[in-house]
Design a protein around this nucleic acid. Sequence first.
DNA 1: TTGACATATAACCAATCGGCGATATATTGG
DNA 2: CCAATATATCGCCGATTGGTTATATGTCAA
Lengths: 128, 128
Amino acid sequence: MSTAFQAIADPSRRSVLDLLAEGERSVSELLGHFRFSQPALSKHLKILRDAGLVVARAEGRLRMYSLRAEGLRSVAEWVRHYERFWTERLDDLGRLLDEDQAARARQGGGAGKTKRQARRTTTRRKNR
Amino acid sequence: MSTAFQAIADPSRRSVLDLLAEGERSVSELLGHFRFSQPALSKHLKILRDAGLVVARAEGRLRMYSLRAEGLRSVAEWVRHYERFWTERLDDLGRLLDEDQAARARQGGGAGKTKRQARRTTTRRKNR
DNA sequence: TTGACATATAACCAATCGGCGATATATTGG
DNA sequence: CCAATATATCGCCGATTGGTTATATGTCAA
């Protein structure tokens, strides 16, 4: 039942993946980086295994875990659909705002790369 | 304490975001796409709001929700770190992650007890 | 004002989660 | 074989989650 989205929801599990991104590690090596118990880590590892984000290889009495990053593809693809909202949109919006800012044109600095700022759209947050 | 990672862990909430990616929607419009109750949706929306992934604007008695995709940036950046594992050419990867092929070549060697074991990057991908 | 609608919040519930200590299983060294 | 080590699994626990129904709040129409 564990999807990659669920698996990476926990910060400890993300840390495990970050560690494994540097290379294969045994459970006890991983454990050294956390404050919780070994069974807790084994549980996290099981969740990551079930989600297809890591694989374990037995070497003697050690279990060497390594990253299986392809399991993150679904996440990457889903997020990529949203990337346009802060790339393309920042460009277009920035272009519009540049006119506005050009009005109070001053920006002396020298190397004139348009240093636009992201401005919040509306967001009339009042809430509660 | 709702982080973006936690917020997108739930498939219903991801669907909400997907819907809002097409444009602003009221709560009842969103509700039409789900089988659960209105309070359940309001809870999801609160979580998304707290995570900074959506914003609400009052329009009469409606609440128009819209996407605030920048909230997904942290996720995108984290995942991008892993993209290289399936994006980069295999040969580049092998170059980055040291002597994989040497370890593979010595596979039949035998009784030598190496302190450091072979790093396993495997996963020969050809497509993409 | 009243009543209907739109949405949020409250109170509750079962299931899941992340942690623990205890224990089971496998491997290695003596 | 035995003890030590490495890891997984079990049984338990309190907190969180995702859902429910009931109710509160705010706005529009009449």
